[in-house]
Design a protein around this nucleic acid. Sequence first.
DNA 1: TATTATGGTGAAAGCGATTTCAATGACAGG
DNA 2: CCTGTCATTGAAATCGCTTTCACCATAATA
Lengths: 326, 326
Amino acid sequence: MVKMKDVAELAGVSSAAVSRYLNGGYISADKAQRIKQAIELTGYVRSSQARALRTGSTKLIGVIVPKINSESVSRITAGIGQVLGRRGYQMLLANTDNAADRELEYLDLFQNHPVDGIVLVATMITDEHRRAIESCRVPIVLIGQHVEGAACVYHDDYEAAFELGHALAGRVDGKIAYIGVTEEDRAAGYDRRRGFEAGLRAAGNPLDSALIRLGSFTLDSGYGAARELLSVAPDVSFIACATDTMAAGALRAIDEVRGMGEGMHRVSGFGDNAFLRALTGGIPTVHYGYLTSGVEATNMLLNTLDGAEGENGLKTLKLGHQLMNV
Amino acid sequence: MVKMKDVAELAGVSSAAVSRYLNGGYISADKAQRIKQAIELTGYVRSSQARALRTGSTKLIGVIVPKINSESVSRITAGIGQVLGRRGYQMLLANTDNAADRELEYLDLFQNHPVDGIVLVATMITDEHRRAIESCRVPIVLIGQHVEGAACVYHDDYEAAFELGHALAGRVDGKIAYIGVTEEDRAAGYDRRRGFEAGLRAAGNPLDSALIRLGSFTLDSGYGAARELLSVAPDVSFIACATDTMAAGALRAIDEVRGMGEGMHRVSGFGDNAFLRALTGGIPTVHYGYLTSGVEATNMLLNTLDGAEGENGLKTLKLGHQLMNV
DNA sequence: TATTATGGTGAAAGCGATTTCAATGACAGG
DNA sequence: CCTGTCATTGAAATCGCTTTCACCATAATA
């Protein structure tokens, strides 16, 4: 492996000069030219490891996600990757498989390991999380949850759910049921359920708390909860779900129980999943700019890292949403 | 930041001893104990950057994918991540957005940058790719394509497509059309089409080459191609697609043209997408163990890196498939 | 008793960059 | 002619760890 010293010797300069050439320090045009040639000739590339050791910066961003094979997350990740690539960083991806402890583990790992910053696609935020975020040695941005005192990019799940509930209340005749997710997930669990309930109530069609079930983000859990609902309360006429994935499961359940094609008029979700949209013609759901949230969060993070001129540092950013098919 | 020297001083030993303690070299029980305490006391963690510089190994694996927000790829990635995490490595993810040149770019970047090995989720393999793979300084494993002389984990697309075509030929009465993808993608483009054609032919129902269209892996492209097919050849009664995603698009097109619910009996795909399965009750498709391919490829790669005892080095591995709903 | 092994040990030499620092020569102003 | 700037320069000091190497006990062997 050709190193800086080799280039320096070939160009007849000191390695300090080469380093300066590479990093834009004082260098005469004449030597710059010789160095340039020497580099091309040798095909030299500088060791990012040595550089990292010396400068303390690795140009690596840790990205922690709860699950990589989910449409929303992979969209977010795509957005993060876009910005990272454009700005000369690389992505260190950590998948926690929905285990909150693995999240903490990685948060820890990344601090002592070589990342310049962290993007956390958050689900549950426990006190331990808050503490870990607080004491994080590198800048960190959350996506998906609003945490006081932390930099975050999120959507207003309460508001969106309220609007959805309000809109649906008028359109549905009969009982509405709800399949949510754990309330430890503040945004997708608590906020969506509360917002939805409030929306229904405001429209004069309050949610019967006996018709609330808990799923686990998976299609199968949505299916199971819906089957159970339909057998316990056969008069339920609409099932709202906290995610499109669970809505797909509920839809199948309804199709099975009530006949093919029935489901698509009787479920709603969150996330505007492309498959679901295409296959059903569009169930009521909320469209979130997932890719955008990845982009915004990453820009925010890199701006503070690169010490951008503008005062655009870490802050909190609420993105808009859009009701679909209501 | 507390460094090894600090720990050594606190424990009253040399830093060499600490390093040996950490890496399992000669160390007396007594000193090991003192070092252990000193580490706990100071909360020392070793700098992976210094370690990387010294040892030349970063415990980082570069993963190049064509598109992160796709079910198959994110499943593969999940599998890769599982193994990596379990074996103490981390994943450096690069998303090429289906641009073959970006693939080469990353292949290059990763070599001069800090990865110990590379997993390439491959689509198109040009000669330039072959050259880049050949001359790669770190071990590399391909997923999804079979390339002579390179380590790869792949599925037998020709065989699977043949079986699917053969099975469908008997079940479909009327004309069958095919929406494929670029043949530059040997596996998903060339092999699937060829296999499917051969399967139909073997069953005595050859594919009319006028009924072949090209999509681009997206749902919309499947939709567009199907609409065009249906208007040009209204007597087409079945549309086979090279991916489930495109099949979803075709399904929607048929629903629009022929009436809701018609599509699901008149399309087939590849990949066994969970959404599609749930929402349609299951179209004919091929199930591939995507997660498994990620797992296998990564194990293969890490085995050579860790110089595992067994002779399980880089080789080529063909995984099985399973026809669904035929 | 003389000699090997053998388990332990620390000093010191890197790994390949960046960055400080003192030195240099050129040049303008006084 | 002297002095003060100013752009350039290379030697050398790090960055924090791993790893050789020489060396020392002590136990085992001849």
